[in-house]
Deep mutational scan, measured.
Amino acid sequence: VTVHVDGVEYDFDNPEEALKFAKKVAEDKNGTYEVHGNQIRVT
């Protein structure tokens, strides 16, 4: 699973970890996250 944040890609073997990371980053920057299959984009 790849999490995209501001043009940087973070790869996770564990989808739950990826989702947790995306949620935290989105909260920290008052943004949102979208899941597209095995890609998660934080905006």
Rank of each mutant, 00 (worst) to 15 (best):
T2A: 05
V3E: 00
V3K: 01
V3F: 01
V3W: 00
H4W: 15
H4L: 14
V5S: 04
V5D: 04
D6Q: 06
D6A: 08
D6M: 09
D6K: 04
D6G: 09
G7Y: 04
G7F: 05
G7D: 07
G7L: 04
G7W: 05
G7I: 02
V8S: 07
V8T: 09
V8E: 11
V8Q: 12
E9M: 14
E9T: 14
E9P: 10
Y10Q: 02
Y10W: 09
D11E: 14
D11T: 15
F12R: 00
F12T: 00
F12H: 02
F12V: 00
D13Q: 11
D13P: 12
D13V: 10
N14S: 13
N14A: 06
N14G: 08
P15L: 15
P15C: 14
P15G: 09
E16P: 02
E16T: 08
E16K: 08
E17N: 07
E17T: 06
E17Y: 05
A18Y: 01
A18P: 00
L19R: 04
L19N: 03
L19A: 03
L19K: 04
K20S: 11
K20F: 06
K20Q: 12
F21R: 03
F21Q: 03
A22R: 00
A22V: 04
A22K: 00
A22H: 00
K23L: 05
K23N: 06
K23F: 04
K23V: 09
K23E: 13
K23M: 10
K24F: 06
K24A: 13
K24E: 12
K24H: 10
V25D: 02
V25G: 02
V25A: 12
V25S: 08
A26D: 01
A26L: 07
E27V: 09
E27C: 15
E27I: 11
E27D: 11
E27K: 13
E27H: 13
D28K: 10
D28N: 10
K29Y: 15
K29S: 13
N30E: 09
N30Q: 09
N30A: 06
N30G: 13
N30I: 04
N30T: 04
G31F: 07
T32N: 11
T32K: 13
T32L: 09
T32S: 14
T32I: 12
Y33S: 02
Y33T: 05
E34L: 07
E34N: 05
V35W: 11
V35A: 05
V35R: 08
V35K: 07
V35E: 05
H36A: 12
H36F: 13
G37D: 08
G37N: 07
G37E: 08
G37P: 04
N38G: 06
N38V: 05
N38E: 04
Q39H: 13
Q39G: 05
Q39S: 11
Q39F: 10
I40D: 01
I40Q: 01
I40P: 00
R41F: 15
T43R: 11
T43M: 13
T43K: 12
T43V: 14
